[in-house]
């Protein structure tokens, strides 16, 4: 499948959704940063079986009062 890199406008939308309202200098940094992680995210978005568990365990005993 052909991938199309996010445009500055696309990244601006993502930033707005994330509540990031940067000055132009920092927005340029954000675009640079996203360009670096975008290929990684493409590689990550692979098909998985429904039952594949994340490596995350919640142990409710850990949150009991200690005394």
């Amino acid at each position: 499948m052909t991938r199309k890199s996010a445009s500055r406008e696309d990244i601006a939308v993502l930033a707005r959704v994330a509540g990031l309202d940067f000055a132009p200098k920092y927005f340029d940094e954000l675009v640079e940063a996203y360009r670096n992680i975008e290929p990684m995210l493409w590689r990550l978005r692979q098909g998985r079986s429904r039952a594949d568990e994340p490596a995350h365990v919640y142990d409710p005993r850990k949150f009991m009062p200690k005394d």
Binding site: L14, A18, Y26, Y34, L41, L44, R45, A55
Partner: peptide
């Protein structure tokens, strides 16, 4: 700063998929 910024644009589902990949 640039690493933290990048994290702000990662979707919740990408995080979970990465945790599933960790299991594998």
């Amino acid at each position: 700063r640039t690493r933290v910024m990048a994290g702000g644009l990662i979707r919740a589902e990408d995080y979970v998929q990465a945790m599933r990949w960790r299991t594998e």
